[in-house]
Design a protein around this nucleic acid. Structure first.
Length: 191
DNA sequence: AAGAAGATTAAA
DNA sequence: TTAATCTTCTTG
């Protein structure tokens, strides 16, 4: 079965335990995905694509599943998402935290002063900086360029916890949707 | 053309 | 608790 054909909420859970890899000419960094958030397009007030809002920024959310969506936020941070769902259904999954595996020294370099390894990637802006993700990656396809993903460890459903998403207080009824997923007791999860 | 707000982070 | 800081979108 093709991973990208899964419904977004299913995919958000399946991504847990998989290894996210970024390779460029000189550097390789990777980490296990331990926390994700699903954004369900038109019906989800928390999503950039709520009401099918289609702009240069959100355009890639309408593309096929497995497309990369990166965006800039709060004047300083990049967030990394994977588009999900059918074409023209603008859903996406935000990667919120990973557990560093390869290129830890490179991550430390990119992040500057950071004391503990756990601080490297336990938040969406942090992991993007550690992994070297930027706006130019938006629109690229997973597993077809420098950024790829592969099976790493099997996560049982009882090891997955869920809860409300973070940073979307404006989203009215969507505030409480339990679309955030993480691996239970994993120290690399944010917060 | 200008202003407001944001899927965050780090430091106080 | 707040500043940092800039893109995107909305309004005029």
């Amino acid at each position: 079965m093709n991973l990208w054909n899964l419904p977004t909420l299913e995919l958000a859970k399946r991504l847990l335990g998989m290894e996210l890899i970024h390779k460029n000419q000189h550097e390789l960094t990777s980490g296990i995905i331990v926390e994700t958030e699903a954004y369900l397009g038109p019906e989800d007030r928390a999503a950039h694509s709520f009401g099918n809002r289609r702009t240069p920024r959100t355009e890639v959310m309408f593309h096929e599943a497995g497309t990369i969506y990166t965006y800039f936020i709060y004047g300083m941070h990049v967030c990394f998402n994977i588009v999900s769902g059918p074409v023209d259904k603008p859903e996406a999954i935000l990667i919120r935290a990973i557990q560093p595996v390869k290129g830890i020294e490179i991550m430390k370099e990119r992040r500057g002063k950071v004391k503990k390894e756990v601080q490297l990637t336990n938040g969406p802006g942090k992991l993007s900086k550690s992994m070297g993700f930027s706006l130019e990656h938006s629109g690229q396809k997973m597993n077809m360029g420098g950024i790829s993903i592969k099976e790493k460890m099997e996560i049982q459903s009882h090891e997955i916890e869920s809860g409300p998403r973070i940073g979307i207080q404006y989203a009215e009824e969507a505030v409480h949707f339990p679309y955030r997923f993480w691996i239970k007791n994993n120290p690399y999860v944010s917060r």
